[in-house]
């Protein structure tokens, strides 16, 4: 474990807590894409298949349980909570996210490190996570007003994988044979997808104005 990865995990945890805070306290999911939340639940479900077979550390297991539990409970809140679901804008959250799942699964079947069920599912989760934010970014561009918590959620979610890139650079130079092109490329693509959001997020922070994405 290095400082970049710990910072990345804490940033990821913070993004999940910000979203749970928003949904649980103000009982609203306005501006939040259910599609992205469903994709993330699938990402964690396919990435953490080894949670029962490979024990790595208490930290690793606890964090996996937190990410699994939070992503599925957020999906439940938006779909079934009698108050929260009323604030879900299903007419705006129209990204066809199965069009993201299918190419990711096909790519995972062809491009992976080992052709085993767990490895292909794990690789699928990497590809899917890289594009999982798209429905959320599309929704943000449609709903003009982005509330602070949603903006902070997206920022933290994008920043965590960016920190992981520093972690991979660090591990490359400190661990022999630490080469994982699939993970690296998926992580860089994922972070680049946030590039324009980061730009407008910093602009709004610098000029102390409300975050607005161009139409």
């Amino acid at each position: 474990m290095n400082i970049f990865r710990l910072a990345g995990d804490m940033t990821h945890l913070a993004s999940v807590l910000v979203l749970l805070l928003k949904i649980h306290t103000i009982k609203s999911c306005a501006g939040v894409s259910l599609k992205t939340q469903e994709l993330y639940a699938l990402v964690f479900a396919t990435r953490y298949l080894d949670i029962v077979t490979d024990f790595i550390s208490v930290y690793n297991t606890v964090m996996k349980l937190i990410f699994l539990g939070s992503s599925f409970s957020i999906v439940w809140y938006i779909r079934h909570h009698r108050v929260v679901r009323r604030s879900y804008d299903k007419d705006q959250d129209t990204f066809r996210h199965y069009l993201l799942m299918i190419p990711c699964m096909l790519l995972a079947l062809f491009v992976h490190e080992k052709f085993t069920f767990k490895e292909v599912m794990w690789t699928f989760s990497l590809y899917l996570e890289a594009v999982a934010i798209l429905p959320q970014l599309v929704l943000l561009q449609r709903t003009r007003n982005i509330d602070n918590l949603t903006g902070q959620y997206v920022f933290l979610l994008g920043a965590y994988r960016g920190l992981y890139i520093f972690n991979w650079i660090y591990r490359y130079f400190t661990e022999p044979h630490f080469v994982h092109w699939i993970t690296w490329i998926a992580g860089v693509v994922q972070t680049l997808l946030y590039a324009d959001f980061f730009y407008y997020y910093f602009e709004s922070w610098k000029n102390n104005v409300r975050l607005q994405l161009p139409a």
Binding site: I56, S57, M63, Y164, R171, E175, H177, H180
Partner: peptide, 10 residues
Amino acid sequence: ADENDVKDEL
């Protein structure tokens, strides 16, 4: 997960 595996990450 062996030493330099990336599976020890989240």
